[in-house]
Design a binder for these strands. Structure first.
Lengths: 341, 341
DNA sequence: GGTCAACATGACAACGTTGACTATTCAGTC
DNA sequence: GACTGAATAGTCAACGTTGTCATGTTGACC
């Protein structure tokens, strides 16, 4: 009762193994009538090709790896679901690979992963995807991969890439604050190694400049993508006599920390200080008041990444008309909530 | 340069394919000298057996599936890492399978998963693992699996199981509150479908009784494992004239919501109301004040689950002396933080 | 009607591994 | 020295799929 093989399909449909194989793989040289007949049998028997056999036979593989090193589980889980969904649709299996981007042997580790697990390609999430030493090395080893990165324009280089325009989104958030009358706005950065930090900060500064507001560098503070880091920096800011009237956290965790700090200082949000975050994580939804933020549909981004990867690996697998691009842009969307009202 | 096969090893070592296979699989009928020689060549060539070929050949498979439906990404990511680590150690590959436990076709879905992906077995996390309709059906289909559940004693039935003694841990948390002089303690439940809810509540009640405190049922409130649900219930509690002096949230999200509610009501924590959570999630670490909670080492639990599963599937794979148990207990540990000081 | 190309299909081997079976070696025994 | 049985090693086929190459089938054109 368990396994229907290509053999069964061939027997029932009255054709050869190879013809079934051709139908499965969308090869063109099959008569339409035959194709239909075989498809019907496939549906009927609920046949699904066996990954192991496929991988074994060709040097082609139908497994892809998802590489990430992200401190934010919400992000990780969303990316996983998006990629997994796309994998299922396209008949691939998924191998997750959490790793340490700072680890010395990371390149070797990824090469071994691809070889040992016979992976067709990799989807690489930030921050690993933003480390050029790593991606260049992978490209040299002839490994197929697609990156998800933070950038304001298509990256050069031939490797496919999905880029999230954090800069444009950060501009929107900053403009939102400016529209509400704020001119002294603090910016709490994340780690500099994450491209999202300079990108979001650039968007912030661009918005100020566009509105003729000069940037006060003493309000642009380095730090980390964590609640504690946000709390600490905001606490210091609140002690200053020239404290800002608004705080823009480079992500929601920082903003949530800042929110806690402002309240701890006895000030109100948004009355005394407006606060905005980035990423639309539960931190922004669960704080009191909920935080204005920018949302990216991670699932859709992950899906798109998979599609680009497949296009690169097996161009023929895609339907005729589909566009052959190697990059895709996503712009997170401003979500207004009470923290800036 | 990429692939060393069993053939290469055999040639270099001057033995037959089969002998190498025997060495790899720890079969006993190989002379020690031969075994050593082959092992050396294997290391030398960095040979690693090909999963696809293995899976294809035997009906045995070296892939296991991780099934979960959990709204808490922190938990999911930790479980993934724990299981993945154990998989690597034991030479298995891992296939993640997020799913909807309430979905009608879930049993069929899991059976198909096992058949189509040729999985050797499943690691099932709560709450899917606690749905007996599902696990019984899987057992009937002859599918190997191990459950991670919440329970205060080894479950009956032959399927291997890792049980987390939430009841005992909840007793510790409640006793901690009692030790601090609280007698009117509210308990904010999670969803009743999650076994952890009745278990933790039972531990809470046991502690009260053990200290001669009668349970006030109007302080034991049903709800959901969410920030909002905690916020809502705590807000109502704070409006009561006979408000409790302490709140025990069934998890940290509930507790964090309660914390926000208490502060919103103009009361202080822990001054007016003490608050404790459960799970040691970042919610408990990031709130102000940080929350007293109970911590389980999810990674270790996941690892242990994998070991039990392997023991069930391939008893011979384990080293000689290793104990052959089918259940393992973990007791979360009390972590005292300022929210109850 | 015969020729040729284009299209459609099939036969067979091969991917890397292991199970079932067979062959060899080597003590120990009569 | 031939006979056992256990210990050790090898041969071969098979898992489900697809690439290569060969074959059959169609239709258009002279």
């Amino acid at each position: 009762m368990s396994k229907a093989t290509i053999k069964d399909v061939a027997r029932v449909a009255g054709v050869s193994l190879k013809t079934v194989s051709r139908v499965i793989n969308n090869e063109p040289t099959v008569k339409e009538a035959t194709r239909k007949k075989v498809r019907a049998v496939i549906d009927d028997l609920k046949y699904q090709p066996d990954m192991s056999a496929r991988n074994l036979r060709g040097n082609k593989s139908y497994a892809i790896g998802l590489v990430y090193d992200n401190p934010n589980p919400y992000y990780v889980v969303d990316v996983q679901e998006g990629v997994l969904k796309a994998c299922r649709e396209m008949g691939y299996s998924l191998q997750i690979h959490p790793c340490d981007a700072a680890h010395d042997g990371i390149v070797q580790e990824l090469c071994d992963l691809v070889n040992n697990s016979r992976l067709a390609g990799l989807v690489i999430a930030p921050p690993v995807s933003e480390n050029e030493a790593i991606t260049n090395a992978l490209a040299e080893h002839g490994i197929h991969f697609v990156r998800i990165i933070s950038a304001s324009e298509p990256p050069k280089g031939k490797a496919p890439c999905v880029y999230v325009n954090d800069r444009a989104a950060a501009r929107s958030v900053a403009e939102h604050l400016i529209d509400h009358g704020h001119t002294r706005i603090a910016f709490l950065s994340g780690e500099e190694e994450h491209l999202s930090t300079p990108e979001r900060r650039a968007g912030f500064k661009e918005a100020l400049k566009a509105h003729g507001i000069s940037v006060d560098d003493s309000l642009v503070l380095p730090g980390a993508y964590s609640f504690d880091s946000g709390f600490e920096r905001a606490t210091k800011l609140m002690e200053r006599s020239d404290r800002p009237s608004a705080i823009f956290g480079c992500n929601d965790e920082i903003a949530a920390g800042a929110l806690a700090a402002v309240k701890t200082s006895g000030l109100t949000v948004p009355g005394d200080v407006a606060i905005a975050g980035f990423e639309n994580s539960p931190f922004s939804q669960h704080s009191r008041p909920p935080l204005t933020t920018a949302a990216q549909s991670i699932g859709e981004i992950a899906r798109q990444a998979m599609m680009l990867l497949i296009a690169e690996m097996r161009p023929q697998a895609l339907a005729e008309g589909e566009v052959q691009t190697t990059t895709a842009e996503f712009v997170p969307e401003l979500i207004e909530r009470p923290s800036t009202a």
